[in-house]
Amino acid sequence: MTIYLPIAEISVNMFLLLSLGLGVGILSGLFGVGGGFLMTPILIFLGVPPAIAVGTEANQILASSTSGFLGYWRRGGVDVKMGLFLMAGGLVGSSFGVFLFTLLKNIGQIDFFIKIVYVVLLFAIASMMLAEALWEKHRAHPKRATRRKKKRRRNWTKLLPFKTRFRTSRLYISSILPLAVGTVVGVLAAMLGIGGGFVMIPAMIYILRMPPHTVTGTSLFQIVFVTANATFLQAGFNQAVDIVLAMLLVAGGVVGAQLGVRWGTRIDAVQFRLFLAIIVLAVCAGLLGELVLEPKELYSITQATQRP
């Protein structure tokens, strides 16, 4: 059954969208990633204009991260104070991101920008996953199972001013750090249609040095606010949010995430990470192809928005 998406202005098979949401939902349940970085390029392949893919993804991630956040909230896995600092940065970053986005859209380069940044981003993610999966395989070998030497780097973050105490995470660090991390992730989230968890979680672990039990919940807390802000501004300034598309993806996504979490305990994580890395690489190659291969039609036509 085809459905006409009112904002994207294309007709797409409804079940294709539902199963797409389901598939990416399963992956996000398995790996604990949001899946925005996969969904946005796939929507572009389907013919959704890149700008609308980004705006709509912000809306979808808002729904899925709200659901995830509530789960962590009940278990006490959210450092609210840290979350508020990250959020403050995130609101600034995502507003700036939408501003840049609108600017690029007006000079006609937003599609190119989204594609090229995704190529770089997906390549980085895929190589990190491959490296991690291969490393774990290597370590799993019984003979080689040696303790990793812990590198003691000089911690430059200790030198920053405006130190604040974060009780839930048992940290006493400069408040500039969470603000900066939040801002960078906010810009990425608004411009690329991602939650930014895969950037923020490593940053929280390695730069902020937060304890593992508060990392995911707190990052979800920030993502809820950042994607809400991005959705609001993208809809307001760029008319880039397709609520019908977002809700279809959400419907498939929540079911998929549940399945993913349930299957997560039963599968070989290393094998599966390799598999995901290959998917990400394939998507990356597809986008690169769109950029490098000579297009069949060199001219593209956009219609000025129709006043009904």
Binding site: P6, I7, N59, Q60, L62, A63, S64, S65, T66, S67, G68, F69, L70, G71, T227, A228, T231, F232, L233, Q234, A235, G236, F237, Q239, V241, I243, V244, A246, M247, V250, V254, T305, R307, P308
Partner: peptide
């Protein structure tokens, strides 16, 4: 309806999109 709403009252539309997504998230949870 959705198209006209998103065009004419784009910020209100954005606000509604946020509310709907929040509701969907709570419901899923």
């Amino acid at each position: 309806f959705i198209f006209a709403f998103a065009e004419r009252y784009s910020f209100l539309y954005g606000f509604c999109a946020v509310l709907i997504a929040l509701f969907a998230g709570i419901l899923a949870n």
